[in-house]
């Protein structure tokens, strides 16, 4: 779908914004302020390109790594209906990775380079996928609440300035909204089922609450990337704002099902309209980012193995490149 963007000499090299041509920079900002989309062949500041690659690439990695915790339950899904739904959902997630790698490639970084950076640990992915899906109920909670949190993030970013990323996000959000229905319906089935099923889904929610609260990132005071990205419409809302939107939409639904959120301090302050909550253990968040979460090692090992095992296939494909082959059938 996308192809051929300008390829800069060194994407990793940092060029401070104040070293850019001030006239072009101003024109660029004016286009963004006017609500125009930036396209691959347009001029853009080096730092805009670098930050976008970082953002889109990490999003792509999150999709492919995110397929792992749920993917392990495809073969165990209870019954045809759930099995077919979960298969389709996880396939969507892998498809999102494909879309996003394509979108990032328009900025000049090849898919291979992105995957290498994932495998070396240089490039990150969403922390939430470093936690295990211990039971079937975990997959239901993930499909409902993690996908819900992702939709909040993605619908916000879909209004950003970079055309290819916005278009990929529009499509992703449409698919994610189906996942949300699927996840919600699965959670409802368990929450309104037997005592055992109810206990399963409560335990899963308790397990996942902390990672869910971490999903939108650290409180904005400690975020490294700030205003510049918001002016360029690379980042469309603060972490805290997205977390508040999520809590507003989903805490009432969780309570409606009679489930308990494992945070006694969680409540809505009616005066400010803001949700207040206890410390979701940001120390743990940073530890997981550093690679010390329960599944970091396993997740990357799985990807490394898939990459290594598939090398001969990719080499065979490259050997044929240039020769156009018609399907035989």
């Amino acid at each position: 779908m996308y192809g051929g963007g300008f390829i800069p000499d060194d994407i990793d090299k940092k060029v401070p914004v104040d070293q850019e041509d001030p006239v072009r920079l101003e024109e660029f900002q004016a286009r963004i302020d006017a609500g125009e989309k930036i396209e691959p062949h347009d001029w853009m500041p080096h730092e805009y390109r670098r930050q976008l690659i970082r953002l889109i690439e990490q999003h792509a990695h999150s999709e492919i790594i995110g397929a792992l915790p749920e993917g392990t339950w495809i073969t165990r899904a209870p019954g045809f209906r759930r099995k077919l739904s979960l298969l389709a959902k996880v396939q969507d997630e892998v498809g999102h990775a494909q879309l996003l790698y394509n979108a990032a490639e328009t900025l000049g970084k090849p898919r291979e380079a992105m995957i290498n950076d994932l495998l070396s640990g240089k490039s990150k992915y969403s922390n939430v996928f470093n936690y295990p899906a211990k039971t079937w109920a975990d997959t239901a909670v993930i499909a409902w609440l993690i996908d819900a949190a992702a939709i909040v993030n993605q619908t916000t970013n879909a209004k950003g300035s970079y055309g290819p990323y916005c278009r990929a996000l529009d499509r992703i959000c449409q698919e994610e909204s189906f996942h949300l229905f699927y996840g919600y319906e699965s959670v409802v089935t368990l929450a309104t089922g037997t005592e055992q099923q109810r206990a399963m889904v409560q335990e899963a929610l308790t397990r996942w609450w902390k990672p869910i609260m971490h999903f939108h990132g650290p409180p904005d005071t400690s975020s490294v990337h700030g205003n510049q990205l918001e002016r360029w419409k690379v980042k469309m809302a603060s972490n805290d704002a997205m977390r508040q939107t999520f809590l507003n939409m989903y805490v009432p639904k969780i309570w409606e099902l009679g489930l308990t959120v494992p945070d006694p301090d969680l409540k809505k302050n009616e005066e400010t309209g803001q949700w207040e909550f206890g410390d979701p253990d940001w120390d743990e968040f940073w530890e997981v980012i550093k690679g010390n979460g329960p599944c970091n090692h396993e997740r990357l090992q799985v990807r490394r193995k898939a990459e290594e095992d598939g090398r001969w296939v990719r080499e065979a494909l490259m050997a044929r490149s240039g020769k156009q082959v018609l399907p035989l059938s």
């Binding site: 492919i64 397929a67 993917g71 495809i74 892998v94």
Partner: peptide, 10 residues
């Protein structure tokens, strides 16, 4: 289905 997320290319 066991290939989901483990293939040689996405």
């Amino acid at each position: 289905s066991e290939w989901t997320a483990f293939g040689p290319v996405i």
